[in-house]
Nucleic acid binder design. Structure first.
Lengths: 393, 393
DNA sequence: AAAAAGTTAGTTCGATAGATAAACAAACTT
DNA sequence: AAGTTTGTTTATCTATCGAACTAACTTTTT
């Protein structure tokens, strides 16, 4: 007897509303839920009892009385299942196992270098398998795996191009899904980071933000109306190849004057070579920061220039999106000390005044693995969504 | 007996669904609606009869039989009310009176020059009053007024700044609402144009598009997931002040190298002055096009340069949004003949290949007053939405 | 200290709205 | 006359709501 449509939909919406109230207001009573949601007390009771049966929530002891019977407090069962989130870097794989709330239970970092696709895939599986084996036992087990990758990812989870990994047309999603038999999500690293910051970082209270991932290249994750915007094919946020100098230097992309030629880690390192700050052949961001910290003026100037160039692109983004917040993340965020003042002052000087009144410019807190957490959160949410879609059997 | 929530909501959703099916599939029978919506035949019958009572739809004669009883065809009553849409230009006011479907019933164009705010407001009211008086009698009368303005408009409908009109902090919405006592919507002209193109122009079949309004300045209207994106405050799409030349010429906005300094009508005219194509003091786009048509090479080169510069910013937009379509509108669209080949080839050469596969670059059909139609459509839709929210009395 | 009164939490139950399925009537075609 | 399709009617079902009710407290009164 399949009731195709809307009668059940209401129930699912309400159940979902109740659950999200429990998640966001943590210890909360049935009475409070009824009041805040506008639902009838009886309705809340019946939905709550279903959620209890499904082990998505649990009752804790009685709470504080406010002059009458003491309420039974309800809590989200964050340990009902666990998610895995992977940040696939150019020379590292960082994986986290999180509960459904996004708390990290275990994490694992593996470094690698110059490996083939097969070797990298092996390493990915090693990390995933480790995390799975480290998961506490739970009613729903591993509910999904999310992977953030540095490259162009389409909506089907295929990595079309990841220049820094040397990958082309890799169906990573299918590959991993076949091994572990749980839903897998592959997202661009900047999108993952954006979502991670929105859920767990400084973007928590904002619904219109752009996360600028300034690493070897530059990418952006766009969050509008609280949701990630992927573009038509999933390629949005390729801001690194935005022209900021129409007569500028050539880029491998075929264009010239691309933003990331002036404001990325790569740009910093190349420039350091050119002005011959060091005669060594290999230079690293870490070393440059160390020398800046020691007061070497030439290096400081270099970092400040990167900051100014970063600001140019950010100004473009602000004018285009009118966001509430910009978060600068990835490796260059580590150089916040030298970059931030330049970014802030350049924006103050060169942005239309109306756009300036409300906007916040923040740097990622790098102790927070935003990308890995972001994709893990995607997986958790997908699980909850599909779980709530299900009918009672 | 106020049932605060969800039971009625289902009905409203379904009623809205039925109405939109009737609107989009024009002569359609109850049976077809039931099949296409998945709703039960009885449900459809009852919702349809309410819509009939509200005069939002009407029955026409019987349709073609497909082997049984002939269906009663239902049609949207586009004449149930009328909307007014105004395109507020720098030296003209163009107004349309449309039915609820967006068909133009009457239109009116008024030119003006160097007038004060009060004079302009007078003129706006003159146009509106004329259109109101020209409206056929209908059950709901004038359901709303929409105004597209060239400037920065916030979400409350205040025009914060319209440099080309010399306006600052004008509460146009309140002003007009007080006079005519119907809902008024004020939108940025590019947003209005974007919506007009999406509903009635070449964007009809796309859900991810950016409308580039290339006039005296450059603005953009952004449509994502089928909906207009306004930004946090409503100032999104100020792409004219996107930096495309970090070492470029100074802009009145305080920044340098802004896109509109290289690719707008203003840019074209200034450049024409500088290269001294004419010794006259006043030069117009129309005259330049005339001379290009007559084969004057210097003018043609100039137009082509504008095309190339236009493409630079468009490439930035494509990389940022990954849209499905770009529509170039406003005055420069008239120079399509010279601009389009340059835009297309520049994009082909300088955009990442993945972004190119699907994207369509179109020019506005200037016989379609996209801005005025866009804001009129906003008004119509708001009316229908609020009308469907209402309960039976 | 005990009893009574007042509050708040959560459950139960009858009423209700609106959707569905299925039967039915109407109006056709074959 | 038989079969089809359209649209209406009716019985049934589901999920919400309002209100009564029980439970478990706190506060006030005696």
């Amino acid at each position: 007897m399949h009731v195709t449509w809307n009668q059940q939909l209401v129930k699912k919406e309400n159940k979902s509303l109740v659950l999200s109230l429990i998640i966001s207001h943590s210890p909360i009573s049935r009475a409070d839920i009824a009041q805040q949601s506008g639902l009838n007390k009886g309705t809340v009771s019946s939905l709550v009892s279903e959620l209890l049966e499904e082990q998505l929530i649990y009752e804790s002891g009685p709470g504080e009385s406010s002059g009458g019977r003491r309420p039974v407090m309800l809590l989200f069962n964050q340990g009902a299942g666990y998610s895995i989130g992977l940040d696939l870097g150019v020379n590292y794989i960082f994986g986290v196992l999180t509960d459904l709330q996004g708390n990290i239970v275990v994490q694992k970092n593996e470094k690698y270098k110059n490996s083939s696709f097969e070797e990298t895939l092996q390493l990915i599986q090693k990390v995933i398998s480790f995390l799975i084996s480290a998961a506490p036992s739970s009613p729903y087990g591993i509910v999904g795996i999310g992977i953030g990758a540095p490259g162009i990812v389409n909506k089907e989870g295929d990595i079309l191009l990841a220049p820094n990994l040397g990958w082309k047309n890799i169906s990573l999603k299918t590959e991993i899904e076949n091994v572990y038999n749980v839903p897998v999500i592959v997202e661009n690293e900047a999108n993952a980071g954006a979502y991670g910051e929105k859920k767990f970082g400084s973007g928590k209270h904002f619904d219109h933000l752009v996360y600028v991932s300034a690493g070897i290249g530059i990418g952006a994750g766009i969050i509008m109306n609280g949701e990630l915007y992927n573009g038509f094919n999933g390629y949005s946020g390729e801001v690194g190849h935005m022209t900021i100098d129409r007569n500028g230097i050539k880029c491998i992309c075929g264009n010239k004057g691309c933003w990331e030629l002036y404001a990325s880690e790569q740009a910093l390192l190349s420039k350091a070579q050119i002005v011959n700050i060091n005669n060594k052949t290999e230079l690293s961001l870490g070393e440059l920061m160390e020398r800046a910290r020691n007061g070497e003026q030439a290096v400081i100037t270099l970092l400040e220039e990167i900051g100014q160039n970063l600001a140019i692109g950010i100004i473009n983004i602000i004018h285009t999106f009118n966001p509430q917040q910009i978060i600068i993340g990835n490796r260059l965020a580590a150089a916040k000390q030298w970059i931030e003042p330049q970014v802030q002052s350049t924006i103050n000087n060169f942005t239309l005044p109306f756009h300036q009144t409300d906007i916040k410019i923040n740097f990622s807190d790098l102790t927070l693995p935003a990308s890995a957490l972001g994709v893990a959160a995607f997986s958790s949410e997908n699980f909850l969504k599909s779980r709530l879609q299900m009918n009672k059997e």
